Computed example of a mutant assay.
Amino acid sequence: MVGMGAAAGAAPAGDVAAGAELVVGGRRHLDAVRLPEGVRTVVLGALAPALDTVAEYVERGRPVTVLASGDPGFFGIVRALAERFGPERLDVRAGVSSVAAAFARVGLPWDDAVVASAHGRDLRTAVNVCRAYPKVAVLTGPGAGPAELGAALRNDGRVFVVASALGSAEERVERVTPAEAAARDWGTAVSVVLCLDGARALGPVRAVAGVRPGPAGWALAEDAFAHRDSMITKFEVRALALARLGPRPGDLVWDVGAGSGSVAVECARLGAAVTAVERTPDGVGRVRANAAAHGV
C-alpha cells in the first residue's frame, strides 16, 4: 500500500510497484509509476470489485500493490483493506497527506484544525463543521466540491483555500470567497478545501489535536450571560433542552426567538453550528456579545 505524497517528491514515482503481479490505483497514480512487465492493473472506481480482485491474488499468495493519494490511512483506503484482509497483512508506506500539504502551502499549523470528509458522505456535515469551527479542512468528492461548499457557506464570513493537484506540475492553491467558489467549475483535480475564519485561523497552542475539547460544564448559571430584565432561559430548562437535543459537531441548531442566546451559545459550546434569530437590533447585539464572551 503506497501513498503518493502531496509534496513533490514525497513518494518515489519509480519502482514502487516492483515485484507486484497486480497494481490497483487511480488512473493518474498508475500513470505516475513504472509498471512491471506483464502486470495486471485495476483502475479504481467502485471499491468492492477492486477488493474482490485483490482478494483473488491475496488468497493465492501473489504480491499486490495498491496506490493511493497522500496518507492512505487518513480517510483513505487503508481502512477498507484492513477490514477485508487484516492490518497485519498490510505494508503501508504513507505519503504527505493533502491536508498537511495544503496547510503548509498557506503557512498555517493544523494541529487545531478539524478535518471533515465530504467524499461519498453527506455534505451537510462538512458545511456545519465549517460554520462551527474557525479552521476546517474538507476532503472533497463528486458533487461535494468547492462550488457546493461555497453555495452553502456564502453568507458565513469564511475564506476558502482551494488546493488542486497538490504535488504535481499542475498544482494550484487559490484563496477565494465562498461566492467566488460557488460560481466556478473546479473540475476533478481539487485535493482539499480549507475553510477559514481569517480572524481566528491562527489559534492558541493546543495539547489535544482536532475538535476542541468539550466544555467542562453546561447548563450555565444565568449570570454567565448578559440578559434583559431576567429574560433568559433558566438553567434547568436549558439542561433539559440540551439533553434532548444532544448537539454535537456536524449538527445545525436553529434558535428562533433566541432572547439572550443562552441556548444557542450552549449548543455552540458543545460543537454544533448554530443560527440564532432575534427580532430587535439590541437583541441581536446581546446574542452576539454572549457568543463572543464564550468563544463561539
Results as ranks from 00 to 15, higher is better:
Asp91Tyr: 01
Met231Gln: 14
Ala102Met: 10
Pro72Ser: 12
Gly145Met: 07
Thr177Pro: 07
Arg154Glu: 15
Arg62Asp: 03
Leu44His: 11
Gly25His: 05
Gly45Lys: 09
Arg238Thr: 02
Gly203Trp: 09
Val161Thr: 15
Gly214Arg: 07
Pro36Ser: 14
Trp218Cys: 01
Glu59Gln: 13
Ser230His: 12
Val96Thr: 15
Leu139Met: 14
Pro281Leu: 04
Leu47Met: 15
Thr275Asn: 02
Ala272Gly: 05
Val296Gly: 09
His119Phe: 11
Pro204Gln: 01
Leu108Gly: 08
Gly145Val: 08
His294Glu: 08
Thr65Pro: 11
Glu180Ile: 01
Ser98Met: 10
Pro146Arg: 14
Arg27Ile: 10
Val138Ala: 13
Arg184Val: 04
Gly187Ser: 09
Val106Glu: 12
Gly107His: 10
Asn128Cys: 10
Val256Pro: 00
Asp156Asn: 11
Leu194His: 05
Arg131Asp: 02
Gly217Ser: 12
Ala272Arg: 02
Gly214Met: 03
Asp282Ser: 13
Val208Pro: 07
Asn155Phe: 12
Trp254Arg: 04
Pro87Thr: 10
Glu21Pro: 05
Ala268Trp: 00
Leu220Glu: 06
Arg60His: 08
Phe225Trp: 02
Gly283Arg: 04
Thr233Arg: 00
Ala289Glu: 15
Asp197Val: 01
Tyr57Cys: 09
Val99Trp: 06
Phe160Gly: 02
Ile232Glu: 03
His294Pro: 01
Arg27Asn: 07
Ala243Trp: 03
Ala116Arg: 05
Ser69Phe: 13
Trp110Ile: 12
Leu242Arg: 01
Ala292Asn: 05
Gly86Arg: 14
Arg93Gln: 14
Gly271Asp: 05
Val253Gln: 01
Ala183Met: 04
Ala100Asp: 15
Gly26Phe: 04
Arg131Cys: 03
Gly198Glu: 13
Pro215His: 06
Asp15Arg: 09
Ala152Lys: 11
Val162Met: 10
Pro12Gly: 15
Val42Met: 02
Cys195Pro: 03
Glu21Asn: 06
Ala137Glu: 11
Gly120Arg: 12
